[in-house]
Computed example of a mutant assay.
Amino acid sequence: MEWLTAPFEVTFVQRALVGGVLVSAIAALAGTWVVLRGMAFLGDAMSHGLLPGIAVAALLGGNLLVGAAVSAAVMAAGVSAVGRAPRLSEDTGIGLLFVGMLALGVIIISRSQSFAVDLTGFLFGDVLAVGEGDLVTLGVALALALTVTVLGHRAFLALAFDARKARTLGLRPHLAHALLLGLLTLAIVASFHIVGTLLVLGLLIAPPAAALPWARSVHGVMAGAALLGVSATFCGLLLSWHLSTAAGATVAAFAVAQFFLSQLAAGIRSRRARPVPDRA
Rank of each mutant, 00 (worst) to 15 (best):
2 E>P: 08
5 T>F: 15
9 E>D: 13
16 A>T: 12
29 L>N: 08
31 G>D: 06
32 T>M: 10
33 W>P: 04
35 V>Q: 02
37 R>L: 09
42 L>K: 02
44 D>H: 14
44 D>S: 13
48 H>C: 04
50 L>Y: 01
53 G>W: 00
57 A>K: 01
57 A>I: 02
59 L>I: 09
60 L>H: 03
62 G>I: 01
63 N>L: 08
68 A>Q: 01
84 R>Q: 05
88 L>G: 09
88 L>S: 12
90 E>I: 10
97 L>W: 01
99 V>N: 12
101 M>F: 15
104 L>N: 11
112 S>M: 11
113 Q>P: 14
114 S>A: 15
115 F>S: 12
115 F>C: 09
116 A>I: 11
118 D>T: 12
121 G>T: 06
122 F>T: 02
132 E>F: 10
132 E>V: 14
137 T>F: 07
138 L>I: 07
141 A>P: 03
143 A>G: 10
145 A>F: 08
153 H>F: 14
156 F>P: 08
160 A>M: 12
160 A>K: 11
161 F>Y: 12
167 R>K: 13
171 L>W: 06
172 R>H: 14
173 P>F: 05
173 P>S: 06
178 A>Y: 02
183 L>V: 11
192 F>D: 00
193 H>W: 01
197 T>S: 11
197 T>D: 03
202 G>Q: 10
204 L>N: 05
206 A>T: 02
207 P>F: 08
210 A>L: 01
212 L>C: 06
217 S>H: 09
219 H>R: 15
219 H>Y: 14
228 L>I: 15
230 V>A: 13
232 A>G: 04
233 T>H: 04
240 S>T: 01
241 W>C: 02
243 L>Y: 03
244 S>M: 04
245 T>N: 00
245 T>M: 05
246 A>T: 11
252 A>R: 06
252 A>M: 11
253 A>K: 04
259 F>A: 06
266 A>T: 14
267 G>Q: 13
268 I>C: 11
272 R>I: 08
272 R>G: 07
275 P>E: 09
278 D>V: 13
280 A>H: 10
